[in-house]
Simulated scan of single mutants.
Amino acid sequence: MPKYTKEEKAQQARGKALQTADEVVERAQGDRMRKARNYHADSMHGFSDERVLEILKSPDAVYHSTAGSGRLIFRHGEDIVVAEGRGAGAGNVITAYGPSGIRGDSGASARRPPHRPRWADHPHGRGGGQDSGQGRLYGSWSADSMRRHSP
């Protein structure tokens, strides 16, 4: 018999992801962020550290990938920041992309219309205007009280 059920493991992962997301936002509020070794928001996508920090300070929503990596996606408007979600590097920023960057809507050459980010079409509803809420950790932040709000 397994030690934990699938549901219990998912709940534990969600709790850890929430804690990591809170830590990332709190760190950004102090104008700090940790970069992953493979950080490339600036070199490949034209995002300044200041823009990345803006997104992390006040995300419209934060998503948790339920795939193997468990990454965290911080969305502000149509720009996103991707961070490690678990392990020793949890909370380390990997990349950022969106219409504010030099490559447009996606990390690859922008092939979709400017109003439709590549990640908006994800089959599990992890972004864009058609968000089903699945994978969403929380909606938005109140800048003064740092409480979670539903969208």
Rank of each mutant, 00 (worst) to 15 (best):
D42E: 15
D105S: 14
A36K: 00
G135V: 07
N38A: 12
S140C: 10
A143R: 14
R126K: 13
S65Y: 07
D22A: 09
P59G: 07
P2W: 01
A90F: 03
D144E: 15
S100D: 13
D79A: 01
D42N: 09
K16V: 06
A90D: 06
A108Y: 13
K3A: 11
D22W: 12
G133C: 06
G139L: 01
D49E: 13
M146H: 15
G128A: 00
A21F: 03
A10N: 06
K9H: 01
A90R: 00
R14M: 07
A108K: 14
A41N: 00
G70S: 00
M44T: 13
R136N: 00
I55D: 04
S48V: 01
Q134Y: 14
D42H: 14
G129W: 06
G30N: 15
P113T: 08
S65R: 06
M44Y: 12
G46D: 09
G135A: 00
D22E: 12
G133D: 02
G133L: 05
I55P: 01
F47Q: 03
G129L: 09
Y97E: 02
P113G: 12
T66Y: 12
S150Q: 12
H122A: 04
A83S: 09
G139W: 04
S132I: 06
M146L: 12
H64C: 02
T5P: 05
P123W: 10
H76A: 13
V81Y: 10
E50A: 14
E84S: 10
M33I: 07
V24M: 01
P113N: 11
A143G: 00
H76M: 12
H40M: 02
D105H: 14
E26G: 04
D60E: 09
A90K: 05
M33K: 04
D131T: 11
G125K: 03
E26H: 11
G128L: 05
L72N: 05
H45G: 05
G101H: 04
R148I: 01
A28H: 01
H45S: 03
Y63K: 05
R112C: 02
A120Y: 09
K3L: 14
F47V: 07
E8P: 02
S140I: 00
